[in-house]
């Protein structure tokens, strides 16, 4: 079952990883010409015009975009979090529901396998691929940065792990929600909406004190990139909360799935 799930989702994994890596490949190819070109100074001048709150929300107050690593720390990880978040959301909402949508659940449901086992094996396959895409993008960017010049390797390794803290919970939350649905189409919109809304909350929360409370409604708060950049470490509390959300939603999915009408 696990082997089958890994096989079924492999194509999706390749596409998402490939597109993300391609995007960063383009960045690594064009970035040297931008930072060495005449526009570099004007970009820095333009950055100074933005309000500090806005720069803070994209971590631009901590990193200058005059190097590939600087860009990656600020805007680059915005994309990484969003892309892996969307991938995790889609994977989470599809992994159980696809059986119902394709009507193969009528076959799987009568096989001698417990529903809990179905959820666990599919969850494991999903987590493997989220780790897989994080690792693929992380390794590719590591090589790209290494070829582009000097960078803080320890800080980068911690940074490249941060998507796991927010995206694995996205996967489990979306999988739980999918246990209430019967069609994948509807769930796809819900999961993507959830990821984007969560990201918007996270961005808004750093814009002013009035909106700070929004961070409690966003799983992207768990990525805690600012702390990693400043302290070069991952906050154990974030790891704990992330694992707690994963476990909680996995357990709730198992309970719900055991009660669900499958056809």
């Amino acid at each position: 079952m696990l082997k089958r799930e890994l096989k079924v989702n492999f194509k999706g994994y390749l596409i998402w990883s490939g597109v993300t890596i391609l995007m960063f490949l383009v960045v690594f190819l064009i970035y040297p010409s931008i930072i060495n070109g005449p526009e570099a100074d004007s970009i820095n001048e333009m950055m100074k015009m933005f309000p500090p709150e806005l720069l803070k929300s994209f971590n631009m107050d901590l990193a200058s975009i005059d190097s590939a690593y600087g860009w990656l720390k600020s805007e680059g990880f915005v994309f990484i979090l969003l892309i892996i978040g969307c991938y995790a959301g889609i994977l989470g909402s599809n992994i159980l529901l696809k059986e119902e949508s394709d009507k193969t659940i009528e076959y799987l449901g009568v096989m001698p396998i417990k529903r809990t086992s179905i959820v666990l094996q599919k969850s494991l396959a999903g987590v493997v691929y989220i780790i897989g895409i994080t690792a693929a993008v992380g390794v590719f960017n590591f090589i790209g940065l290494d070829l582009s010049g000097d960078f803080d390797k320890k800080q980068y390794i911690f940074l490249s792990l941060t998507p796991l803290l927010s995206c694995v919970p996205v996967f489990f939350v979306c999988m739980f929600l999918s246990a209430f649905a019967h069609k994948t189409k509807k769930m796809l919109g819900i999961s993507l909406g959830l990821v984007i809304l969560s990201y918007v909350f996270n961005t808004l929360s750093s814009l002013s004190e009035n909106t700070e409370y929004l961070k409690y409604f966003s799983v992207f708060t768990l990525a805690d990139i600012r702390n990693v950049i400043i302290n070069i470490s991952v906050n154990p509390l974030m790891i704990f909360i992330s694992l707690f959300i994963d476990t909680l939603f996995l357990c709730m999915t198992i309970i719900r799935y055991n009660k669900k009408e499958l056809v």
Binding site: V110, M111, P112, R115, N258
Partner: peptide, 23 residues
Amino acid sequence: DKNDTDAKSQIGYLPSEINLYDD
């Protein structure tokens, strides 16, 4: 029970409309 794998392994089911893994 839906989770009784022993009992389920003793049952064969042929649905009216067969949907299997297309790949």
